[in-house]
């Protein structure tokens, strides 16, 4: 099949699915704001307040190599990267499996991962819009105080973040698929979320962590969720090439694993005759 035919085959399905996803996001207007945006805003408020007090008691005005304004900038970037990364919906997949709703995807010419992929893409686009607006707003208000990154730095930071988002999607999807074997999977997802906050440097920059842990984390996708892109966007790009390789590896690995798990789970599902 030539690319154009492929395009016209997939675009309408993905497009329509994304439209449905947008409608769903907006139907529950308040919930969308409260579930997707508010936690990050509150987290930002907590962090800025906390760090403000920290610096009040720090005589040298330098903590872990950061000034307060650098720390605040760091957390602004972390806010934006988190906005782009945490868009998964694993519990929905598990629920679909448990309620037997995935049966329709065995009949549709549209697979389950495509459905969730399109939904994820739709959400990411919305969040990207919110992130861009926030960025413009911050830049307009604080144009003198915040150093706005060069276009290529911005692109590199965005690339890192989107690759982390890709990994987060597959991780979510995988956890969702565990629904084939377990009644409830949200605990796993929450656990992963807590670990991601901790291991990505969302609260405290990773450079504060013990060196052995930092070394270990370099081989995981976690730093790319917050610490790495924030550092890149603040103009420090050491270790980015390695991070891109690591992320590529984890993305590929998770995607392949997801296909494998899907096949295994499906055998179980159809065998149970649900």
């Amino acid at each position: 099949m030539n690319p154009k035919a492929l395009w016209s085959l997939y675009l309408p399905k993905w497009g329509a699915t994304m439209q449905v996803a947008w409608s769903n996001l907006l139907v529950y207007r308040l919930n969308f704001l409260l579930s997707a945006i508010a936690p990050l805003v509150v987290f930002l408020v907590v962090k800025l307040s906390l760090w403000y007090r920290v610096y009040e008691g720090a005589p040298s005005a330098l903590v872990g190599g950061f000034t307060f304004s650098q720390m605040a900038t760091y957390h602004l970037w972390v806010f934006l990267t988190s906005l782009l990364v945490f868009n998964g919906n694993a519990t929905k997949i598990s629920e679909d499996i448990r309620m037997g709703k995935i049966t329709s995807y065995l009949i549709y010419p549209f697979s389950l991962w495509e459905f969730h992929g399109a939904t994820f893409l739709a959400r990411t686009l919305v969040q990207l819009g919110i992130a861009a607006t926030t960025l413009t707003g911050v830049w307009a208000f604080l144009s003198g105080q915040v150093h706005f990154p060069e276009p290529h730095t911005l692109a590199l930071g965005l690339l890192l973040t989107l690759m982390a988002a890709g990994f987060w999607f597959w991780a979510n999807y995988l956890v969702g698929l565990i629904g084939f074997w377990m009644e409830e999977t949200w605990t796993l997802m929450v656990m992963l979320q807590i670990l991601a906050y901790f291991l990505s440097g969302s609260l405290i920059p990773l450079s504060f962590y013990p060196p052995w842990l930092q070394g270990l984390l370099n081989y995981t996708p976690f730093p790319a969720i917050a610490y790495l892109p924030a550092r890149v966007l603040m103009g420090e790009s050491a270790g980015v090439i390695q991070a891109l390789w690591v992320l590529g590896f984890w993305n590929l690995g998770a995607a392949l694993l997801a296909q494998l798990v899907w096949k295994k789970g499906l055998r179980l599902y159809t065998a149970a005759g649900m």
Partner: peptide, 9 residues
């Protein structure tokens, strides 16, 4: 659709 959802919002 999207416009409807947005209007509804």
């Amino acid at each position: 659709g999207f416009i409807g959802a947005l209007g509804n919002f």
